[in-house]
């Protein structure tokens, strides 16, 4: 028997099919719980500030990754910001065409050192540019459930 035997017909390759039968359940965590509840209850985005490093974390974090301080200074940051970078998606996870294409962006929020990855809405893909000023569009209070999807999308700021 050779170590490498050539498979020249597909049916010669025997494979056992299976899966890993699990469902993951992620808690929002200590900081995430407060961050998401504020979006749900008040449509407000919170950050936490590290006084030593002078950084405002969004999404709010329990600790400063740079100096390891526990963060207890919570503050509201703006729900407006700028597109830091973006991409236009033409296919979904199963490789099916997306029509219309979706625009995904990293939005840096004003008054913070962080931001959110989210969809852009009410805008044509070819109108999007880096630096575009945008604002969060929240779902109605009755529809919000403490999820990042309580923000429907970000849309260009209307002047």
């Amino acid at each position: 028997m050779a170590i490498l035997e050539k498979v020249d017909k597909l049916h010669q390759a025997i494979a056992w099919q299976g899966d890993i039968p699990i469902t993951n359940r992620y808690t929002a965590g200590v900081a995430g719980e407060r961050f998401l509840r504020e979006i749900k209850d008040h449509a407000r985005i919170l950050g936490t500030r590290c006084p030593d490093c002078d950084l405002v974390y969004v999404p709010a974090a329990l600790f400063c990754e740079r100096c390891f301080a526990q963060l207890d200074e919570w503050l509201e940051v703006s729900s407006q910001g700028r597109v830091f970078t973006f991409t236009v998606l033409f296919r979904d996870l199963e490789d099916r065409p997306l029509d219309p294409p979706a625009v995904l962006a990293y939005v840096k929020l004003n008054g913070s050192n962080g931001g959110l990855v989210h969809y852009l809405g009410e805008v044509e893909p070819d109108q999007v540019f880096i630096g575009l000023e945008v604002e969060a569009v929240f779902k109605e209070a009755s529809e919000r459930e403490g999820s990042i999807l309580d923000i429907r999308y970000f849309r260009p700021l209307k002047r």
Partner: peptide, 19 residues
């Protein structure tokens, strides 16, 4: 009482039997 999200990984495999 706590916020959480769920996710079912679409982890399907075909494991080759080998030589």
């Amino acid at each position: 009482k706590v916020l959480y999200t769920e996710w079912v990984p679409n982890a399907r495999y075909a494991w080759d039997a080998g030589v």
